[in-house]
């Protein structure tokens, strides 16, 4: 049960920081996403994010930071396994599942639905 509580507060806290950025700096959502992915990739590559992910589980993997963490985790693993070519094959390998799912569901949704007025 405490696993769920950990996921809640860490995940919630990461979103709270994002909200502060939106309200205080007027960053658009696209820029927030870019910022978070880059932060995730940096934190992941120096090993800090792994500690957070081990602690918070989905609280760390569901936010977009986790996506950045995945990218760098996979690059480092590929470099360790394959050497030089790993730099090129690593990052998108980790992102493949998420990006492919987004393209597929996005495409189907676009065929099925029309834009809705607010």
């Amino acid at each position: 049960m405490s696993e769920i509580l950990k996921a809640f507060w860490v995940g919630g806290f990461i979103c709270l920081i994002g909200q502060l950025l939106i309200d205080k700096t007027k960053l658009t959502s696209g820029r927030i996403l870019v910022l978070y992915v880059c932060i995730g990739a940096v934190l992941g590559s120096v090993g800090i994010y792994k500690i957070i992910a081990d602690y918070a589980g989905a609280g760390a993997t569901v936010p977009i930071i986790g996506f950045g963490h995945n990218l760098s985790k996979s690059v480092l693993k590929e470099v360790a396994d394959k050497g030089f070519t790993g730099i090129f094959t690593g990052s998108l390998k980790a992102a493949a599942g998420g990006i492919s799912a987004t393209i597929l569901f996005g495409f189907i949704a676009a065929l099925v639905f029309n834009p809705k007025e607010k």
């Binding site: 939106i22 007027k26 658009t28 959502s29 834009p115 809705k116 007025e117 607010k118």
Partner: peptide, 20 residues
């Protein structure tokens, strides 16, 4: 037109963001 302007100048209508 609200929807046409949002599409051209801001974000697609179905984006879930908050307006300042």
């Amino acid at each position: 037109h609200f929807c046409a302007s949002e599409k051209q100048f801001r974000f697609p209508l179905d984006m879930g963001n908050q307006r300042p």
